[in-house]
Nucleic acid binder design. Structure first.
Lengths: 341, 341
DNA sequence: CTGAAAGCGCTTACAG
DNA sequence: CTGAAAGCGCTTACAG
């Protein structure tokens, strides 16, 4: 437990003022090259690291970013999405020597309260807003706070916050065209929460494309991303008359559950039922057959979100008002094939 | 974007000194009840929230706890364990108005460097050490730093750090006795990383119990918790002569992958093969049949870990040197049954 | 019970 | 190029 040194210690050792040490450490003009080198050497030798609180207090910046997640422990655990996203965010932040503060909340009010507090106490310099909804009230509320923020999802037209998002419509079209080409005509979709923006975008893209391709039927059932609900819904879809020959699921967890139901009912996959998952986590390769899915690099997406937020905060040179990322791409695997007639 | 108030503003409005405001806000003696009430009312009206950095600088405490995870984005995403753990930790911390700082690292050195930096810059008051290994070098290194810490896992005999852990041996015995009672005699185990402490504890518990019960064979194969490795290993186990009638997996992800392999090989579960998973995430109920598994409340476990750390830091009254939590309990489901002879 | 002051460890104008 | 000083917003002995 070595003693913690301060710039005063370095100043004393180098025979200069604290101000000079600060300039040297921060690579700013105000000290000669020789003095700077000497100061840096002494600091390195002492194993000096700036006290965060003192620095934050001086520069009025927390050097940290916050994320509040409004999901239950179980949902957070089971959905690979979040950890992959956070992992990408974190990598970018730590490269900029920014910290990541995480909080889990259970209501919209609690979430907004967290933002208010974080900003008031300057615990964070900005936040990443996840799970963007249709007409999301948080966009305005956060903008009102003056808290720098980036929406993880979009597009959010007219919002006062920049957004980073994937185009969700194009992959929907890809999937339907693919299933159509395989010969499927009766399709169902087990969708995510209807109030989420990307669900709404997919709803519309599927509806439009389906109409264009002339499918006999495209049934959409919304549920909550859990395996339980997906299983219940899938069971109903598969036992009703005129059952679909293919089901598209809005995430990987629901797709795995759907596959389980097919097994349970003795329906062969893909012969009796084709399955497509959204979000290509390793989960999709755990099953037999492996699941055809819409692949996107969520870790890279997280990194872009963090980058955009740093830009808004002003910690990065360039600034992007909104970033549109590469759409998900279809990865065909064993769970899709021509329907057995 | 309302103006941010400071205690100086409150002091001016209340006609008292900044010191009095501080005492009132912190519920400390030094102000009369009447003055305190007046100050508090003004503070509330202003929507005052203390500046974190200033407070941290004064009290020499970060009011935050750190976790560095040495896992890839993919592993973190797929294993429900971490998010459930973090969720429990976070709930406890935020109740104590402590923040959680998260960092993902890719090597032991990077991890230790993060701890050193966090502690040097006082970004955290303490850390939670995850994935405890056999003879884990971090226990000593962190203790050397003088950084308050709690080991999430154990028991760690002779360590200078307190630990919070589950007994891993008892559930192992439970599983073997259960499988034995069902009539299984040839068993295999797809285990986790051998250098992790809980893997070693399970290794030994299985070996001892198996010997006592007189199993014909208990084969253990170590792998890395991923579905890929588990699938490979399971495939080998099930295609070799004298294949096991039951396999115990060290986590849920590997068990799901193992079930996929059984399907692939046309082996009925549980008739041709019984499967037991460790860690009862929702994943275990996604499959068909649902997986028999060892259930423990990981969120509650995370809460206990956070509690212990707060105690070590001194933010909580009681202090626990080490906490032993309830062992996992067997939840029998559809994936286990008597072997078909 | 109350006020004035020093201090936490930095950063940053402002004079020399 | 360098030094002395003020200030960030709190907390906390120390006098009254």
């Amino acid at each position: 437990m070595a003693r913690r040194f301060t710039i005063a210690d370095i100043a004393a050792a180098a025979g200069v003022s604290k101000g000079a040490v600060s300039y040297a450490l921060n690579g700013r003009p105000g000290v000669s090259d020789a003095t700077r080198a000497r100061i840096l050497a002494i600091a390195a030798e002492m194993g000096f690291v700036r006290n965060r609180a003192a620095r934050s207090l001086s520069v009025a910046s927390a050097q940290a970013v916050g994320i509040a997640l409004r999901r239950s422990a179980r949902t957070l655990g089971i959905e690979p999405y979040f950890m992959e996203l956070i992992s990408g965010i974190e990598a970018t932040l730590s490269a900029a020597s920014f910290g990541l503060t995480l909080q889990i909340v259970d209501s919209l009010d609690a979430e907004l309260e967290v933002y208010r507090r974080w900003w008031a106490e300057r615990r964070v310099d900005g936040i990443l807003l996840c799970d963007i909804g249709v007409d999301d009230p948080r966009l305005d509320r956060v903008a009102d706070l003056g808290l720098p923020a980036v929406a993880v999802g979009g597009p959010v037209q007219g919002a006062r916050l920049p957004a980073v998002w994937h185009d969700d419509a194009e992959p929907c079209r890809d999937v339907l065209e693919y299933l159509h080409a395989l010969g499927h005509r009766r399709i169902a979709r087990v969708a995510g929460l209807p109030h989420l923006l990307h669900t709404a975008i997919r709803d519309r893209a599927y509806a439009e494309t389906a109409a264009g391709l002339g499918f006999a039927s495209v049934t959409t059932v919304h549920c909550d991303y859990t395996g339980e609900e997906s299983a219940r819904v899938t069971r109903r879809l598969l036992t009703a008359p005129g059952r679909p020959t293919a089901i598209v699921f809005d995430n990987d967890v629901m797709a795995v559950a759907g596959l389980g139901v097919a097994h349970e009912l003795g329906i062969a996959v893909p012969g009796g039922l084709s399955i497509v998952a959204w979000d290509d986590s390793p989960l999709c390769r755990l099953t037999h057959p492996a699941l055809t899915s819409l692949t996107r690099d969520i870790t890279a997406y997280g990194a872009q979100c963090a980058q955009a937020l740093l830009a808004v905060i002003g910690a990065e040179p360039e600034r992007h008002a909104a970033v549109r990322c590469r759409p998900a791409e279809l990865s065909p695997r064993g769970s899709t094939g021509p329907p057995r007639t």
